[in-house]
Computed example of a mutant assay.
Amino acid sequence: MIDDVISRLDDRVVVLEHRVEGAGSLADLMQRNALPQHTPAAHVLPLGLIGRAQDAGAGAYTQMFEEAVAVILTVRNHTPAGKRALEDLRGLIMAVVEALAGWAPADQTGVFRLTRGSLLNASKGTVVYQIDFAISDQLRVFS
């Protein structure tokens, strides 16, 4: 699903075209204590599963769950206090939300919903912001 989200952002958020990558790229940057060479940039990370209501009966177990993903945005700007970066960030955040909220990869039963967004870091002319999304699905186990 991460690859589908990356493709969707690459296609729908023009300013991120060819600047959306996965967890491996972010891990490499963190290991080198570096930032993306060109910004704005985005990294899509799996956040895990969130269990919801379950039901068991007649040889079957079903449970609703959500699969969560994060989009980490990095915007660099060298103006005083990063003012321009903060202004640009709002538009970028909304473009990402509009690209993913209400959409689902072809094999999913639910659609993505926005769960939260938060500022991770704002220093040295760079702003890093995380947007979390979740998509509903259903687990079915037959005994």
Rank of each mutant, 00 (worst) to 15 (best):
R90G: 05
Y61F: 14
D55M: 11
S25A: 15
A41I: 13
D55L: 10
S25V: 06
F133P: 00
R52D: 15
W103L: 06
L86R: 00
Q108D: 09
L92H: 03
R90N: 04
F65E: 02
V44Y: 00
Q138C: 10
D3K: 04
S123R: 07
R140Q: 13
S7D: 07
A56S: 04
Q130L: 10
H18I: 09
Y129I: 08
A134H: 08
Y61S: 13
V15M: 03
V13G: 00
G117T: 03
E17S: 15
D88V: 06
I72D: 01
Q63C: 13
D3Y: 05
S25P: 14
S143W: 12
Q138T: 10
R90Q: 05
E21R: 14
G24S: 09
T109W: 02
V13D: 02
V97T: 09
G125C: 12
V5D: 00
A41R: 02
R76I: 09
L92R: 00
S143D: 08
D132M: 11
P46L: 06
A68C: 09
G59K: 12
P46Y: 01
A70W: 06
V15N: 08
T79R: 09
G24C: 06
D55R: 08
I135V: 14
L47M: 13
L73G: 00
V69R: 01
A134K: 06
R116K: 14
R90V: 10
A101P: 10
A53N: 14
A81S: 09
A81G: 03
S143E: 12
P105R: 08
D28C: 08
F65L: 12
S123C: 11
D107C: 07
S136V: 10
R76Q: 15
H78A: 15
A104C: 13
S123H: 06
L114E: 04
L16V: 04
T39G: 00
M30G: 15
R32A: 13
A101D: 14
L26N: 05
V5Q: 05
G22H: 08
S118W: 11
P105S: 14
V128T: 01
G57T: 04
D28L: 13
K124W: 02
M94T: 15
T74Q: 02
P40C: 01
P36A: 00
H38E: 12
E87L: 13
R32S: 06
D107E: 12
P80D: 07
A41Y: 02
Q108I: 11
T39D: 01
L35M: 10
I6T: 05
A41T: 02
A85T: 02
V14N: 15
M30N: 12
V5R: 04
D3F: 00
E67P: 05
V111N: 05
E67G: 13
A34C: 04
L49H: 11
T39F: 00
Q130M: 09
G48V: 13
V20Y: 03
V5Y: 03
R116V: 10
E21H: 12
G57E: 03
A53T: 15
D107L: 05
A104G: 07
D55Q: 14
E66V: 07
L26M: 09
A58N: 08
V127F: 06
D4S: 07
F65C: 11
A34M: 03
G24N: 13
D28R: 13
T62E: 03
N77R: 10
L47W: 04
S123V: 09
H43C: 07
F133L: 12
